[in-house]
Nucleic acid binder design. Structure first.
Lengths: 242, 242
DNA sequence: CGTGGTTTTGAGCCCGTTCAAGTATCGTGG
DNA sequence: CCACGATACTTGAACGGGCTCAAAACCACG
């Protein structure tokens, strides 16, 4: 593992990123679209998170809003004895609010390289009072996050290993080439078996077994570099339990 | 079971409830505090949900916001084959947004008698644009809901049966009498073993076994009418896995 | 006192885990 | 370009926690 983890202040400030928000790729889909940019500009802190770097929410930290610009991160919940559960993912245009106190045992870990903007949540909240449009966007995205979590709860609580893996693939799997029209893979999600297991509440071995089983049945093809190609969406869909 | 379920329009309109919002018990803690009451008054639909009555989100229904006034409801996710998972609870001052389309396989079921107000979400959203304070409250509560779900995910994904039950009790258990200072039982949560199992992703038998085990160990006492009294918070806390 | 629902308890089984090798893949430096 | 080490993945065997099925005990209520 040799995880490159640091406490809270980490991932150097992003010198490469433009100092202003002009040309920022997530402007059209993020809440900051509606905000007074010249205000935000001096309140945010841009940063880059390299592969496996982690933001852990330490005690006494004030609440923050993380706004993700590019790349992909996973939200990880941890128990004292080291068991972990991936609670979800965040990509460009998504955000995450980390509560104060660090009583949330949640951390943010980059999958590959990720860029993000950090805001002091209390201060941002004040600003938002005068930007209902921006707040409305946040509320809408919160709602999406809630729905995603609710669905995931159902998966974790009630589905078998086969169903769990199938559900994941239908949401995030790649097609052999091009479109196939199905559920746009949010970010070409390339996870290790261990991460997959961690997301689905399984062991890596079980994930591996189910995947090879699916491959034998011709539903998917296993490529190199964690790529998983879905060959038969319909058949796979019938295995999700939905 | 003989579940009293109906489609969407159900639970008669509440004649007993006062037509205006004056004296409403949740005013101080709900978003409607900040809203233009005379506007809301004519846009909401009050209703009572009797024990086990259900609101299911049918196809083609427009999005709604349910604001819970009194009593307790559970949010239930269902798979086509009938497996269910309780996704959470809502009590006075809580709300729930049900998306359009009914593509969310989520339903709301009363545990005992519950009162609530229904709003058309699109219309309410418009109103909220002029009430940033109210929107801020919604956003804050959304955040709480998210944190609750994230914690629950960790429980479902990674904890053993013993740990699951212990975690639940520490959150929601009663004390033998009076205060004991601990986590205020949100609503004297009195659930059947089946509901408990449904919340924790277990079978009723397993829940029962773990509970009697805890009772034998002197950590809890089992009362009548589903009451579970926690005798030793500390010991129980050490069994939660946290 | 009977009836229907809930809870408890028991026995056996199965899915997914754990433990342990073995294999493939990737990155790095010679 | 290849050899090497590290990491990721696969596969097998055995165990065990929680489920299923079944029956008995308990309880609330008419």
């Amino acid at each position: 593992m040799a995880s490159a983890s640091t406490e809270c202040v980490l991932g150097k400030k992003d010198a490469a990123q433009p100092p202003d928000c002009i040309g920022c790729p997530i402007q059209p889909i993020s809440f900051c679209r509606e905000s007074d940019i010249s205000n935000l500009r001096y309140r945010r802190q841009q940063m880059i998170l390299n592969d496996r770097e982690t933001i852990t929410c330490a005690r006494g930290t004030p609440a923050e809003l993380l706004n993700f610009v590019s790349g992909l991160v996973k939200l990880v919940g941890t128990l004292p004895d080291g068991r972990t559960q991936i609670l979800g993912f965040r990509g460009p245009g998504d955000f995450l609010i980390i509560g104060e106190d660090g009583k949330q045992a949640i951390s943010v870990e980059a999958v590959g390289t990720a860029r993000l903007c950090r805001f002091s949540w209390p201060r941002l909240q004040q600003l938002l009072q005068e930007r209902p449009q921006a707040m409305a966007i946040l509320l809408g995205k919160s709602q999406e996050q809630l729905e995603e979590l609710q669905e995931h709860l159902l998966v974790l609580g009630r589905k078998s290993a086969r169903e769990k893996v199938a559900s994941f693939l239908v949401r995030y799997g790649l097609t052999r080439r091009g479109v196939q029209g199905q559920c746009p893979p949010r970010a070409q999600l390339l996870l290790t078996r261990a991460e997959l297991a961690d997301y689905l509440g399984l062991s890596t071995e079980t994930v591996s077994r189910v995947l090879t089983q699916f491959a034998k049945e011709g539903l998917i093809a296993l490529g190199r570099a964690q790529a998983i190609y879905v060959l038969d969406w319909e058949q796979l869909g019938s295995q999700t339990g939905n």
